[in-house]
């Protein structure tokens, strides 16, 4: 088992007056794929945004490679080697596909080259000059994932990468995550699509009301399925 890469301790977060996270605790080890599962509004996306410093106010501890990130601005957090792929994909309409792809600066050595990204997502290579937001939903998701692979970040935060996509594209995203895991990337994945996450993750954290209520190892998932279904309301 790898070293602890990310350790979240008693993380609280607020949007304005709304207290969203109420003491999240979990950890992610190097080379793992870990999912945050939970119903809508449980605080999964806010957890990713809190790790990135994208919420109004946060308290607690976010340790990355044993360095405390809780007081850093989001640009400095990204420079530590964490990359975020948002739920709404965040493709920029005023940039073409290539500009979108090249936008995030490299924060460390070891990122994928453009040819490797085109090999993962051949559609992107054919549409380099298209406006980013003119791509299909699936292509936009490929672009959103592809652009953070260039940066050299070792921890990838993926927020619902399969949302609203056709099954064939979901399978392609799944194969991509498997391959990234093999190449040594560490992935923290927020997913509503439990079936998708089930096949990929080493561990699952169940999130309710802004805190982790249970951790289920990937291998023990089948045995605990009824409880997971209760939590998720499936």
């Amino acid at each position: 088992m790898g070293e602890i890469l990310l350790a979240i301790k008693n993380l609280n977060a607020w949007y304005g007056e709304s207290h969203i996270l109420h003491g999240m605790d979990f950890e992610v080890r190097e080379g793992e794929v870990v999912t945050l599962l939970g119903r809508n509004g449980a605080g999964k996306t806010t957890t990713l945004k809190s790790i990135m410093g994208m919420v109004g106010k946060r308290q607690g501890s976010v340790l990355f490679r044993n360095r405390e990130l809780i007081h850093l601005a989001s640009n400095r957090i990204a420079r530590q080697g964490i990359a975020f792929c948002p739920e709404e994909r965040g493709i920029f309409a005023s940039l073409d596909v290539e500009e979108n792809l090249l936008l995030p600066p490299q924060v460390a050595a070891g990122g994928l080259g453009l040819e490797q990204i085109y090999e993962l997502f051949p559609n992107l290579k054919e549409r380099l000059r298209s406006q980013g937001t003119k791509l299909s939903g699936g292509e936009q998701q490929m672009l959103a994932i592809g652009r953070i692979l260039r940066t050299g970040a070792q921890l990838l935060l993926l927020d619902e990468p399969t949302e609203g996509l056709a099954p064939v594209i979901v399978q392609q995203i799944g194969r991509t995550i498997e391959r990234l895991k093999k190449e040594g990337f560490t992935i923290l994945l927020v997913e509503q699509n439990f079936r998708f996450a089930q096949k990929l993750a080493d561990r699952h954290y169940i999130v309710e009301h802004g805190r982790v209520v249970e951790m289920v190892p990937g291998a023990a998932l089948e045995a605990n399925m009824h409880r997971v279904h209760e939590y998720l309301g499936v």
């Binding site: 990204a78 005023s94 924060v107």
Partner: peptide, 13 residues
Amino acid sequence: AATENPELVQAFG
């Protein structure tokens, strides 16, 4: 890009 979504651009570093 920052004109469209400054928060995300900052989160890119």
